[in-house]
Design a protein around this nucleic acid. Structure first.
Lengths: 231, 231
DNA sequence: CGTCGTCTTGATCTTTCTCAACCTGTGTGG
DNA sequence: CCACACAGGTTGAGAAAGATCAAGACGACG
């Protein structure tokens, strides 16, 4: 796919290789050079695990580009005061708080799941900057990619709990370990309660497909996992 | 929010009023004027209800801007051969098949739920065109808006079936009628089986909150619906 | 007017939620 | 350094919700 972009003349803002390796290169720095003497408005900034980058409903002040680590997005479910559920996990190469480009307030609450390295930009700077074509192209590509990668949140309709868990592991962990995140977050992403997730993981462990510790889920037998996944 | 955009100099590509009235103005036509003598690559085209605009996995040839009607997006669930589930409904003012800007193939299958009016552009033209800043800005805004408006697909975790249905109706139908779509699609969006949706609607009808016919769901008592929604 | 697909309704069975107790690793203060 | 409290996670038993299977009703359309 990056081949076609090159053919079309659209520079791959985040080279596939870089994305794959989670290299923390910020695509904006290169984009900012295009045709105008202006510094990239995005400056490096780190957060510790469980830090809250932005809060849904709050006035938007910043936009982030995620270079390292993972961030979970929570959205208040309409009238569900309090209890916000995670609905997607952003990985390196994604934007956080990009809704600020289009509206005054954040829609989602963003919470770091791991220590996180970002580039932050002040909203005003980013808005001004996006008016030039280069930055807009970058943002456009990042947002489209994010939407492609975002899998619809599964529900009971998409298979039993163990199956959904197996599917997620097959996708996210492959042969290695699953990205670290609290059980309640993963449960939310998979449309089940933490207790159900716990049971599902236990059953996969019993089958010998995974090893589960409190802080890690490691895939032992991908084939076995696929069995559980399919059918 | 549109106020702030104006202040920032970012022209509102889709005026709020127009969006609200579902007026089918294509924002690209105005954007295409900016600074260059080039015609807008998007040409009007209509589809009948249940037409398939594009198929997930197929080589991308076009990108659509939706002016009138609604379109459902289906995604093949990993290994679930066949049985694709709808995961979002696009309304006027959204793009369809925008993944073509970033990759060679469509990710989702797009099906018209109603008669639909669009502007279509050939992928190559759109790619070329997006390289200029103006079009990229427009695309960027549309995609970000779409992601904001896309509610995470609810699961049993987000309340019982009748509750989820009530919530959806309160959001989508307000005091009037719900957007027309097959039951199986709505059921998919709400993370339940058609049978369950049917029962949920029946229970809301029994409570006097809605009137349900085979082809229409009309809200009678929004307050009652809200009761069902909350708690 | 008959056929077909979609939707509804009913009866049953499975799954998952719920509530509760218990476990375990972490961090705290004595 | 140890005891202890605490949050997050696990496990168990019971109840409820939804899925499933099957039969019928309704509407669209030829």
């Amino acid at each position: 796919m990056s081949r076609s972009q090159r053919r079309q003349g659209l520079p791959p803002v985040v080279p596939e290789e870089a994305r794959a390796q989670n290299v923390g290169h910020c695509p904006f720095s290169s984009a900012s050079g295009c045709g105008e003497v202006r510094r990239c408005p995005m400056a490096p900034r780190r957060y510790h695990a469980s830090a809250v980058l932005c809060e849904g409903g709050a006035v938007a002040k910043h936009v982030w580009y995620l270079r390292h680590g993972t961030v979970a997005l929570f959205r208040e479910a309409g009238d569900d005061r309090g209890e916000a559920l995670p609905w997607v996990v952003r990985k390196p190469g994604a934007l956080i708080g990009e809704e600020a480009i289009v509206q005054e307030r954040y829609t989602d609450t963003a919470v770091a799941l791991t220590p996180v390295a970002t580039c932050v930009g002040r909203r005003d700077d980013v808005l001004e900057w996006v008016e030039e074509g280069a930055a807009a192209r970058v943002v456009m590509e990042l947002v489209i990619r994010a939407r492609i990668e975002t899998p619809p949140k599964p529900s009971t309709t998409d298979g039993s709990a163990p199956r959904r868990v197996a599917r997620w592991l097959a996708e996210e962990a492959r042969e290695g370990s699953a990205p670290p995140m609290p059980r309640r977050v993963l449960a939310g992403l998979l449309g089940m309660k933490p207790e159900t997730l716990s049971r599902a993981l236990a059953s996969l462990a019993r089958a010998g497909a995974v090893v589960v510790t409190r802080s890690e889920v490691r895939v032992l037998d991908a084939a076995l996992l696929r069995d559980e996944t399919g059918r």
